[in-house]
Amino acid sequence: MKRGKIEHSYSDWQVFALTFLRVLIGWHFLYEGLVKIYTPGWTAKGYLLGSAGPFALLFKSMAQSEFILNLVDLFNEWGLVLIGLSLFIGLFSKPSKIIGIVLLSLYYLAYPPFPGLGENINVEGNYWIVNKNLIEIAALILLSVFPSSFVTGFDRFLTSAKKKEKYDKQKEILQT
């Protein structure tokens, strides 16, 4: 069997583990997005203005323009909700993971846990280079190379019959 096809033959525990991780991240994104939508007058302005590190100027400049700030707010609120839903139910999982990685990278760069940047009111915990954002990025990368939505998600119904056939066939081969 070719190595590239191994994902088509997960064990039940592997399917469970990958689905579990996908649902957890979906849950997190969805809740983050909904909190922002439900908070009256929520805006990323303060977060952007407080940005630290090598890209701080870029993030700060985003908050200076009303137009860009509105875009950022909208993208944050609905981006998070849609990515969350998508991961949760496993629909259009691949593009949403990629957008999720982009969003998380922006959060990471706005407050990079680099030494020498000092304390910041907008971040908690103790991190050096690696923080929770980076770990969630890594988890999404992992999930995009080991997808589970075509097994335990709505993507299953979108997957071409051919692909499914292939999967079933391989599973059969493995089981025999």
Binding site: V23, L34, Y38, F154
Partner: peptide, 25 residues
């Protein structure tokens, strides 16, 4: 059933989040 495996969790989320989110906000 496999395809909608995660939906019950979403159901719980939808059911419980409203109260929680209001408290938090």
């Amino acid at each position: 059933l496999k395809g909608i495996a995660a939906v019950p969790f979403l159901g719980y989320f939808a059911f419980a989040f409203k109260e929680n989110i209001n408290k938090e906000i």
